[in-house]
């Protein structure tokens, strides 16, 4: 059986909120290392990969591998019933028909309990190769969100060009063009504002802004976002969570002109 207790419901609320417009039905794969999710969007352009390590829960118990097939719209409805600060416990039997969610208020004696019916989801798992990326950029997640939203007002696509000069986000559309360039920057007092660019070779790739703006819904999960790029491979957008847990998005590049 599975029993996983989260100190704050907020974490799961934010994760589900960040991915629910990209993927609808997905398996939450539970084993003794934690709860993982991997799903592609309908058009097979983007891939979501979430890992909530067992250390992110206290306690965490999962005796055998269980796949919880959950509709994210249903999960969102139930998670709305939890206060952000509630303690959240996920429970399931070994061959479950439902997943049980318990919300407890730390401040009062309220205890809410919900069951969500599970679905049989035949999901293909993709092997994501270990990649030595040519460029890795760490930057404030709010800054990345603003850049993506701003550029989407002008164009459907953004080119991300990383050189030793810095990283340039550029677009052009019917009304004109725009770009934002960032250089490495260290803020000793506010390290969450740092921009770090680690480059082994120059990279230039083009991506759909619609997807990037969607990924940025995860901005509330982490002060910093990491962008990993290599020529002609999908972009990795990573939001690191506590205890080595993470929410990652992969986006296939656009090609040609």
């Amino acid at each position: 059986m599975l029993e996983a207790r989260l100190e704050q419901a907020n974490l799961l609320k934010k994760v589900v909120d960040a991915i629910k417009d990209l993927v609808q039905d997905c398996n939450f794969d539970c084993n003794d290392s934690g709860i993982a999710l991997q799903a592609m969007d309908n058009s097979h352009v983007a891939l979501v990969s979430m890992m909530l390590k067992s250390e992110s829960f206290s306690p965490f118990r999962c005796d055998r591998n269980i796949a919880l097939g959950i509709n994210l719209t249903s999960l969102t409805k139930v998670l709305r019933c939890a206060a952000n600060e509630d303690i959240l416990t996920l429970k399931a039997e070994d061959a479950p028909d439902v997943v049980n969610l318990v919300f407890e208020s730390a401040e009062s004696d309220r205890l809410s309990e919900y069951d969500i019916k599970l679905m049989d989801i035949d999901q293909e798992h993709l092997g994501i190769p270990e990649t030595e990326y040519a460029a890795t950029i760490s930057m404030p997640s709010a800054e990345f969100q603003k850049i993506c939203r701003d550029l989407m007002a002008l164009s459907e696509s953004v080119s991300i060009e990383c050189t030793k000069e810095g990283v340039k986000f550029a677009c052009s559309g019917d009304i004109g063009s725009g770009s934002v360039t960032l250089r490495s920057h260290t803020n000793v007092e506010k390290p969450q504002l740092n921009v770090e660019i680690d480059l082994s070779e120059p990279v230039a790739l083009t991506f759909s802004l619609k997807y990037l703006v969607n990924f940025c819904k995860a901005s509330g999960l982490s002060e910093q976002v990491r962008l990993c790029l290599s020529n002609e491979v999908p972009l990795l957008v990573e939001y690191a969570l506590s205890n080595n847990s993470y929410l990652r998005f992969y986006l296939a590049p656009k090609i040609g002109d």
């Binding site: 983007a46 798992h125 993709l126």
Partner: peptide
């Protein structure tokens, strides 16, 4: 116009 690649072109099915 630009073409959009599929993620399946990069990551193989397990």
């Amino acid at each position: 116009s630009t073409g959009q690649k599929s993620i399946l072109g990069f990551f193989s099915k397990k």
